[in-house]
Nucleic acid binder design. Structure first.
Lengths: 134, 134
DNA sequence: AATAAACTATACCAAAAGGGTAAACAATAT
DNA sequence: ATATTGTTTACCCTTTTGGTATAGTTTATT
């Protein structure tokens, strides 16, 4: 029951981008150094943030990464989902056919986990980069 | 970001025990059949519930498992922790020395995750077996 | 046009976690 | 004694995780 290391790195990368002057391109190496993240690994996860519309990139000299949206419009759930995919506390919440009893709709555990998952999602959603950067 | 299959099985096993007459010993095989859980796997995870004081067991003819406490005093967090150990959303929440930046106390991500984790724990804690059994 | 600086896309790899099975053992009721 | 039922430990295969390597593409600059 935890976030992956990749998500942790993504949180910190995005937060760092948010702390820089808006629109300024920051090189991967600068992010990696500042946040003490393995450079190669960071380079691998950045495309997921780009595909999710959280970050934009520019290649070539003077290139790098910058936020694609204002910090108010990026929250921790956005970043987590970009890296790990949607949260499913239990596999029966992905698809009810995963329930070994084939009883998901009436299952009391299923229902409880569904509520807890929603609450977790909304907690993550409640932290925007702007909030965190205070 | 999910519970393990073992935890799912444990939730259902404990819930089933709670649905039986108090103090009645239920065989592993009955739990496994009712909840459609691989019998051997169930047998492996039950001792964790016993060590946590959630379930008691009796060997020999007529033996089996029963809740060790009333359903009001067992919640989903208890069961999850018994199987998976404590929740740590990020490794820096286990021990700050895991933070690759060695900056956990001031880290904004660390602080946010700490709050989200507490909230998740209290959500899980808010569902007792008695609540679920209605 | 050439070159160097950045990011991109794949592939690969080792270690750990997850999910499950098996076998030998210990306790208990009959 | 014996059959029943849980306990312990070891083993195994697959998937995930965390990370590195290599070759390729874009772009600013000269």
């Amino acid at each position: 029951m935890n976030i992956t290391q990749a998500t942790d790195y993504a949180f910190r990368a995005v937060l760092y981008l948010g702390s820089q002057p808006a629109g300024e391109m920051v090189e991967a190496q600068a992010i990696a150094r500042q946040q003490v993240v393995p450079m190669r690994f960071l380079l691998k996860i950045m495309p997921s943030l780009i595909k999710a519309g959280i970050v934009k990139s520019q290649r070539g000299v003077g290139g790098g990464y910058a936020l694609a949206r204002p910090p108010e419009e990026i929250n921790l759930l956005d970043v987590l989902v970009a890296i790990e995919g949607p949260i499913f506390l239990n596999r029966c919440l992905i698809d009810e056919s995963y329930c070994s009893r084939q009883a998901a709709p009436e299952c009391l555990v299923h229902q409880a986990l569904e509520n807890i998952q929603k609450s977790l999602e909304s907690d993550l959603e409640s932290y925007s980069l702007a909030d965190l950067l205070g």
